[in-house]
Computed example of a mutant assay.
Amino acid sequence: MIRVLLADDEAMIRAGVRAILASDAEIDVVVEVGDGRAAIEECSQHRPDVALLDIRMPKLDGLAAAAEIRRACPNTAVVMLTTFGEDAYIARALSLGASGFLLKAGDPRELLQGVHAVADGAAFLSPKVAKRVITEFTGETMSRGSAARERVATLTDREREVLALVGAGLSNAEIARRLHVVEGTVKSYVSQILTRLDERNRVRAAILAYEAGIVKHRE
């Protein structure tokens, strides 16, 4: 069972998100709150697997709450709930360790996929926002792409293959099945990749994979 904390200051949004999550028998919303400060307190108490955080909330916004949750509850994956008008916040959230970004007005299936993905240790970007996130983070400059390719070139062939699958949003378990290895081996590869690329988390590694142009469409 995936235990979820839901934080949004709009009651109707919470109701809608909760209803979608309730349609999945493997997801349980253990607590709901309406502000960032309460999200931190409840996360520390309930230790959920996933924290869904609105970016704009009273008392403490979602970005600040995400940073504190990642510090206090390192085993809780953070997913930001966003709108197109909040793109400027996304790059900041990457550096705070957020594992995913979902559009409030997106396909409900993306919400369920995203929760499952980050709970399984993967990164998840809503398809409609992925390009905007990458654009905000990279600036779409040629120099960034060239630098990314140089960094990725330092990896072994197998590490580049794993990085490309991380960039495509696959979880460790999915990568293991794709490459016909055990999940522990994939975890070891991911750890090595993050160390060699000097990246702090899977999301930033995924962005680098996009910059380097090695990500293929997910099958």
Rank of each mutant, 00 (worst) to 15 (best):
Y89W: 08
R204F: 01
D24V: 02
D54K: 05
G97V: 05
I207M: 09
T141C: 05
L5T: 04
V186S: 10
A148F: 07
T185C: 04
D198S: 05
V79Q: 07
S23V: 10
R149G: 12
A51I: 09
Y89I: 02
R202Y: 12
A22I: 09
V17K: 09
R18S: 10
R202C: 09
Q192K: 15
D28H: 02
G34T: 07
A65R: 10
V118R: 02
R160W: 01
I20N: 08
G114C: 14
K187C: 14
C73V: 06
V31M: 11
F101W: 03
L21A: 08
V115H: 09
V30D: 06
I207D: 06
V133N: 00
F101E: 04
L96P: 10
D198W: 05
R177L: 15
K131A: 15
V215A: 13
T138Q: 00
E150G: 11
L63W: 07
A209R: 07
R149A: 08
I193H: 06
A51H: 01
R70P: 00
A119Q: 01
R200D: 14
R47P: 02
A19N: 03
I2V: 13
D54A: 02
K131S: 10
F137H: 02
A164C: 03
H116E: 04
R202G: 07
L52N: 11
E26Q: 06
G121D: 02
V4E: 08
L103A: 00
R18W: 07
D35W: 11
A15K: 09
R37S: 13
I55P: 07
P58E: 12
V186H: 14
M1G: 14
Y189T: 06
D61Q: 12
E68I: 09
T156D: 02
D9P: 12
S146G: 15
A66F: 09
S191Y: 08
P58N: 10
M1E: 10
V181H: 07
K216P: 10
A7C: 14
L96Y: 15
E32F: 03
T185D: 09
P127D: 01
V162C: 03
D8K: 06
L170C: 12
G36F: 13
I193P: 03
A212K: 13
L5I: 03
E219V: 13
T138D: 00
I20R: 12
I55V: 03
M1L: 05
E211P: 11
L103E: 01
A39E: 13
M57C: 13
R132C: 01
A148S: 07
A11Y: 05
S143N: 05
E86K: 04
I214E: 04
Y210A: 14
L94D: 00
G62S: 10
T154G: 15
C43K: 11
A206V: 10
L6V: 03
H116W: 10
D61F: 09
K128H: 15
A123I: 13
L208M: 08
L163M: 07
